[in-house]
Every structure is written in C-alpha cells, then in structure tokens.
C-alpha cells in the first residue's frame, strides 16, 4: 500500500464519552482483580497444591478437547463449507448453538445424553459398565461441546475464503480426495485452523458451567481452574480465587494478543 490516510486524532465527544464508558465497563473488573490481587502471597499461592493440580488438569483437558475438536471439527467444517448435502443450513445453525447456549444448559444436555440415565450413557453403562460423569473424560466432553463450535466456525470461514478451484485443479491432475484434502486444502486453511484451535483451547480452558454440571468437581479428576476458583469463592478463600482469576486473564490476554498479531491477519 502506497497511500495512507493521515491519522485524525480528534474524536467527537458524542462518540468518545460512551466509548470510554464501554471501555471502562470492560476493563474496570480486570483492573479491580489486579488491584485486589494478594501480590505478596502471589508466588506461594501459584505453586500451592490445589492451584497446580487444577492447572495441570486444565491444560491436559483443554488440549485433549482441542485435539478432539480438530479431529471432528475440521471434517465437519469441510462438509459445511464444501458439500451440497441437503439440510446443511440447519446443521450449520445447530453447530453454532453451543456458542450462545448457557454452558450450564449444555451440561444438563450432556447429562441427558451421556449421563447414567442418558440416551447413550445408559447404553454404555449396561453394555460396558462405563459411566462418564465424574470422570476426566466428562470434563473433556464438556469442554469439547462448548469449544468445538469456535473451531468449526473459524475453519469453515477459512475454507469458504480459500479458493476451491485449487482443489479442482489438483483433481484434474489425478489426485484423490484425501490427497487433495491433505496436500492442497489443509495447507491453504492452516492459518485458519491454527487460529480456530487456539480459540478453542482458550474457550475449553475457561469452561465452567457445563463441566461442573456434567463432570462434577473433584481435585485432580474434574476440578479445573475455573472450578477451583469457584470453590475458593464458596469457601471464602478470596485470595486464591483472585490469583486463579489473574492467571486465567493472563492466559487469555496472551492468546488474544498472539492471535491478533499473527494468524488473524493471515487468514
């Protein structure tokens, strides 16, 4: 670009004042956390056993949920973006429902499906004696349920923007659909997949409502960082709750800055 509009620093007050109010509403709670944070005890609390256990579980489950989302979400996005199956608009709408659904409702829905008396769960229980609630698997499922739509939406967008004629050309050269997907489509949408996966991971890490409803809360098994923070508040241990909150905000901010700076622009 050789031509750029000169910067204009004047903002009309009609816009500036509500903008500052909006910004304050977004930033003040976070500033409040930082203000309230017990900085002197911060290092000790960060390496306290409950925090470290929750952090380890959170990183593990969020990563597993992201892997699961990639495995199912990328092909799903491909179908939504490329195929002409009937009823795709309905499927697309349903896939994005968890984005706006209260996570607690998601947790109840998961119980109805995979719980002991659930549609699939009762069947799993009878045939294999497997019960999902209260296990780490339940945490991963809850996180996947809530976070996978982020990945699907990001990858579908990338696939739509990507030129599908590359795929046609590859096909005329004799490539099989799988080879085309692997060597042509995937590299073209890799930035979109990466951005989607990071968003998905961040959302999974922050998952609370569906997890506590579907998986319960037990240290080391199902009690992730947000649940640990909730327990800390319930137990009146505000310091730990604040430390956990600051930790989560730090992770989120790092991820969003990284996404802004790199992959968002690349897609």
């Amino acid at each position: 670009m050789t031509h750029r509009r000169p910067h204009d620093w004047r903002v009309p007050p009609v816009i500036l004042v509500p903008a500052l109010v909006g910004l304050g509403l977004l930033l003040l709670p976070m500033a409040g956390l930082l203000w309230r944070a017990p900085w002197a005890r911060f290092p000790d609390l960060l390496i306290s056993e409950s925090v470290v256990t929750a952090l380890r579980l959170s990183v593990m489950t969020a990563t597993a949920a992201t892997a699961l989302s990639l495995l199912g979400g990328v092909p799903l996005a491909w179908i939504l973006a490329r195929s002409r199956l009937p009823g795709l608009t309905v499927v697309r709408g349903l896939v994005t429902v968890p984005l706006v659904l209260p996570p607690v409702i998601g947790g109840v829905a998961l119980l109805m499906a995979f719980g002991r008396r659930g549609v699939v769960g009762s069947w799993l229980d009878q045939l294999f004696g497997v019960s999902i609630p209260f296990t780490t698997v339940a945490v991963v499922l809850a996180q996947t349920f809530v976070a996978m739509p982020f990945l699907v939406v990001a990858v579908e967008g990338a696939l739509r923007t990507a030129d599908h004629r590359y795929d046609d050309i590859a096909a005329t050269l004799g490539a099989s659909p799988w080879l085309i997907f692997r060597r042509v489509t995937l590299p073209a949408v890799a930035p979109g997949i990466l951005a989607g996966a990071v968003l998905c991971w961040a959302r999974a890490l922050g998952e609370f409502g569906a997890t506590i409803t579907f998986a319960g809360s037990f240290p080391g098994t199902t009690r992730t960082l947000p649940l640990e923070a909730y327990v800390a508040i319930g137990a009146g241990d505000i310091d730990t709750a604040v430390v956990l909150s600051v930790l989560m905000i730090g992770i989120s901010v790092t991820i969003l800055i990284a996404l802004r700076g790199r992959w968002m622009r690349a897609t």
């Binding site: 590359y166 096909a171 004799g174 060597r183 073209a188």
Partner: peptide, 27 residues
C-alpha cells in the same frame, strides 16, 4: 475429474502457493 486425464490450465494458473515450482510440477 481425477481419472479423465484432461489437463486444465486456468487464467490465474492456480499454482499451489505453499509448494515450490518443482513440487507443483511433480504433483
């Protein structure tokens, strides 16, 4: 289309952007 053995060169050529020239030709 993968079995027709019909070569197709389009207006903007559509070379696979992440492959180098040899990889494109060898595809």
């Amino acid at each position: 289309k993968a079995r027709r053995r019909v070569g197709f060169v389009v207006q903007d050529y559509l070379l696979f952007p992440h492959m180098n020239v040899v990889e494109n030709v060898a595809f």
